[in-house]
Nucleic acid binder design. Structure first.
Lengths: 232, 232
DNA sequence: ACCTGAACACCGTTCAAGT
DNA sequence: ACCTGAACACCGTTCAAGT
């Protein structure tokens, strides 16, 4: 015994069978995969790199996931299940719906790695199953008729997904440019817009500061309010 | 001469210098790359496969694009420049804006291959430069004040992008399921929703047919109208 | 100027072993 | 049951040649 005693232990919790090496698990693999995808992008998520980070041979992963596709599906479903819409309650239904989609958006942008998966996977998982049910019930309090309620919610989903995609893209460009501060980035964008030829782009020049604010919290809320305004 | 005479000629147009082999060109590569990405998905777009389809060695492509990233950027910019917003004019500004975003959406969903690129690239290209200017001018006719006009347009962009992403995902799932007809797919979705446990998902069960209509033209227009309704 | 071919370090995945 | 190692067909890209 005491073979690999030097290996640093991450707090001596959770060993199922004493005396045995911790080994792998679906959760450990999933967590590491999400970490790589979110920090270095989905393209950087490689079974070989993943295995390397887990101190394991590449093939070990196949004991837990049939193939990479299955791992990606699991990642997508897991992230989709994260937003806690119970915590979004409010006496005001309008506020409750806004809170819910704010939570969904925050969840998406804080997991940029899985965003590309959105173009191929449609969430029967959780985000549009349990959550949608909850939001539809919030919307019921608005007194809207059935079809309008359902369609308004679908529009909210599209808007939120699109906003997250744009936000993720902007952030990526911002990182490429090496700019840390969001305000600085916004100011640069506004400047660039304002210095366009005014005869070709009069509107973009005039509205530069607002257009440059495209992925702020304020802008997100503005869109949500538009989609819900006709019910007030 | 007459070396490869058997090679089928695609109508004898466009040879620049007679007697010389057509050779490659940025446009030829771009067109083939877009074809592969849209028909088989972005993951299937491989420099080696692309070169193979062009009857050329993989390295030939590097004479025209510095690397794959540059090719992808070019593809993105090209597709972004496609929608013809001039053709969307209408005496009614509301109709004009709807036409414009309908064109943008149609363009996106008919180029599903470049959708994943949206999560990393932010269109300074054309879609949100020349087009945005035009739409902002249409919105000016609504009499809205500056900030509201700019923010409404940003919301329209997010909505349209998100809708295209959802539509592409749904189509992908539909293809996986091997179902050709959109109506059949919608009916299946509605059935699946309606057969959920009514005590857990009362709203989803009741609103099943509308929820299943999430990526139709009608639903898209519904969302556009919501975003523009407060101006009527 | 335009294209090729061999080579390198990577990738997902199969198969046959190890303990 | 759980993990490894070698091998295969692929990938993007570099470098040195060919015409």
């Amino acid at each position: 015994m005491a073979k690999h005693q030097q290996r640093k232990e991450k707090a001596g919790v959770q060993r199922k069978k004493p005396g045995r090496r911790p080994g792998l698990s679906r959760n450990k693999i999933l967590a590491m995969a999400l970490g790589i995808a979110n920090e270095q992008g989905l393209d950087a998520l490689t079974l070989r790199r993943l295995a390397n980070q887990l101190n394991v041979a590449p093939m070990a992963i196949y004991r837990y996931f049939g193939n990479k596709e299955e791992l990606l599906n699991e990642m997508f479903d897991y992230v989709s299940s994260l937003p806690d819409l119970e915590a979004c309650s409010s006496e005001n239904w309008h506020e409750e719906v806004c809170n819910a989609y704010a939570a969904v958006r925050e969840n998406l942008v804080s997991h940029p790695g899985i965003l590309p998966l959105l173009t191929q996977r449609y969430g029967v998982g959780e985000m549009t199953q349990r959550s949608t049910e909850r939001v539809l019930q919030s919307l019921k309090r608005s007194g809207m008729h059935d079809e309008a309620r359902a369609r308004t919610n679908c529009a909210l989903i599209a808007y939120t997904v699109g906003f997250a995609v744009l936000q993720s893209a902007v952030r990526h460009q911002q990182e490429l440019a090496g700019i840390d501060s969001d305000e600085e980035w916004r100011a640069l964008g506004a400047e660039r817009l304002a210095s366009l030829p005014a005869e070709d782009y009069p509107e973009r020049v005039k509205l530069a500061p607002y257009i440059a604010d495209i992925v702020s919290d304020k802008q997100f809320r503005f869109g949500l309010d538009l989609l819900l305004k006709n019910l007030d």
